[in-house]
Design a protein around this nucleic acid. Sequence first.
DNA 1: TCTGGGGTCCTAGGACCC
DNA 2: TCTGGGGTCCTAGGACCC
Length: 482
Amino acid sequence: MRRQATVLHLDLDAFFAAVEQRDKPSLRGRPVVVGGLGARGVVSTASYEARAYGVRSAMRTAEARARCPHAAYLSGRFDAYRAASRIVMGRLREISPLVEPLSLDEAFVDLAAGDDTRDLDLDGLRALAEQVRADVAERTDGLTASVGIASSKLLAKIASELAKPDGLHVVTPGTELDVLAPLQVRAIPGVGPVTAERLRRLGVQTVADLRGVDLPDLTSLLGSAYGTSLHALARGEDHRPVVAERETKSLSVEDTFETDITDPRVLADVATMMSRRVSERLRGNGMSGRTVTLKIRHHDFETHTRSATLAGPTDDGRVIARTATGLLAEIDTSSGIRLLGVGVSGMADWVQDDLFVTDEDAPDEGLSDDRVSDDGRSDEADPDDGPDGRGPLPDADAGPETGGLPEAARDATTRTPPATLRSRPRWAPGADVVHAEHGAGWVWGSGLGRVTVRFETRHTGPGPVRTFDADDASLRPGTVEP
DNA sequence: TCTGGGGTCCTAGGACCC
DNA sequence: TCTGGGGTCCTAGGACCC
């Protein structure tokens, strides 16, 4: 906590929904909900008009539709959100070089790091904040921001919450404890439903109550790090600095399926596709990582992770896929999987030579064995088993190994979607499939090919993942529908 | 048709080393 | 033959945030 109010927190109001209303005037003044549109979707952002009907972030979209059937339901347009966010962050960097973005719509600014001749008295701060809010609205074509200013991150964030929507709240130095005392403990960022319930059982509801709990009791209830920090925050003690550059610690891709998947071959295909996406994002950021994590959510929502650490960092989709599918092979998926994810952590900015990495660290033997025995037609050589027979190369590029296969099976192993996969998807009537990505597309002895396809449209974004047999009638022109 | 996707931080236990 | 601590790395899980 500082003697002066030099921490600013800015939060854009109902950000995703506000961008939609800005870009489509017919949505202005109407309830708008942005989020997942499928059966298992949840609300990401609700406009204030939708909130009036009780629609909230993280609510199931099905429940939101029940509460507010006449709202406009939209999946996100993240490029538009990122563009707006860049403008806002740019404006904040004009105030101070020390800007800490927390997400696309939120950031801390250290006002003491910029111009030292700045007027930090309360009137000066108010004028500065109002100027920023006006500039944000002007430069983003009407998006509104709420701003909090205080002597610490904790109070600045609470202040912007108190200012919502479209307002400014400055916490006068010296009044911090008075502001905190009556608030519910949930108002402290980091106190979620579980902690709030634990505290409630101690009779603690407000921050004032929390101050009555001594440090040993708090650390025994919540653990040492969390207990200690909460003890301090309850007293308004917060010395956390505003940090501009934060290193990425992990990178992951995950997907909840429209319906649970049990087939381990389909899951392996999906994991392979996800590994490729992780690889692309790693390479796009010039990063690599050493630990590969597979995440599985079972039909009953029980969630598990399995990880393996390589000898050196990689950004290679084939290495990630081999590791991920190896981890997957150890898991019983027979009761149905609702979510699968692949991630990488232990980041580095360099890449270990693959020759050094692959042999020791790719526990994929279980997978290829499974496939051969599942199939029951394993007497012919597996053309996708890779040149060394170690397992399928997840990279689906057509190579010489696919020669001699039926036309449809060869298509199934090329990265470019064949024209026959373009169709009008049933789940988004009237929308054209703009992108269909192949999975591993692995092919076995009989010439049957399996191909995993993700259907995606311009309007609804990523859609269902489906697996086809490449010589199945479903791959004939015009007949494929997700 | 309960419960998204992308992250961060913390804890705890076991292996291993000194 | 019995028993130290400390430190680091790895794995798994959980709470939380937007």
